[in-house]
């Protein structure tokens, strides 16, 4: 079955969504995990805390992945009715929203995570405060995710 233009645009949106969000998440998680390994090398009791801080920047990739799946399901690529060109352009907007939002948020959260790992390994009482500071850069990804959902709903893609 040949793809129509609208569905092809939605495919680009899906790629941008998961690609950029995963890039930010991957860089952030790489930074956090290298700090986690450093902490565990000095103090094996840091494994659990290191793992928690390393896992946090995963969320951006999940948001991107969810939006990409929704785009693929509702754009006709995986069956169903194909999208029009207008909805296809909306899909690119949705993908860009969650993708670029996730890119910045993931990297920021990775830096905050690694700093928190350093603070906790220096003073274990810093765990809760570190977690709060690390959670803050999540908001940019949430904004991107919410806007992407709104675009999908009101752009005529979800439920199309």
């Amino acid at each position: 079955m040949a793809l129509v233009l609208g569905s092809a645009l939605a495919a680009i949106g899906a790629g941008v969504a998961v690609g950029f969000a995963a890039l930010g998440s991957g860089i952030g998680q790489g930074i956090a995990s290298s700090a986690g390994v450093g902490a565990v090398a000095e103090d094996s009791g840091m494994f659990a805390q290191g793992l928690v801080f390393t896992a946090i920047p995963e969320t951006q990739a999940i948001y991107g992945f969810l939006i990409a799946i929704l785009l693929l399901v509702f754009s006709g690529i995986m069956g169903g009715s194909p999208l029009g060109v207008t909805s296809g352009l909306v899909a690119i907007g949705a993908g860009a929203a969650v993708g670029f939002g996730g890119l910045g948020s993931g990297m920021g959260q990775g830096i905050a995570s690694s700093a928190s790992v350093g603070a906790v390994v220096e003073d274990p009482d810093m765990f809760a405060q570190g977690l709060v500071f690390t959670a803050i850069p999540e908001t940019q990804a949430i904004y991107g995710f919410l806007i992407a959902i709104l675009l999908l709903v009101f752009g005529g893609i979800l439920g199309a």
Binding site: V16, G19, F20, L23, I27, G30, I31, A32, S34, A35, G36, V37, G38, A39, A41, E42, D43, M46, F100, L103, G104, M107, I111, S114, V117, G118, A119, V121, E122, D123
Partner: peptide, 30 residues
């Protein structure tokens, strides 16, 4: 995308080599 990635990643290149050593050092500071 490439411009955004390059601009946002550049500051991290200076920071990245220090994440592992700094975690170990901060454990020692503790």
């Amino acid at each position: 995308g490439a411009i955004v990635v390059v601009i946002t990643i550049r500051p991290l290149l200076e920071y990245y080599p220090y994440t592992y050593p700094n975690a170990r050092i901060r454990a020692k500071i503790g």
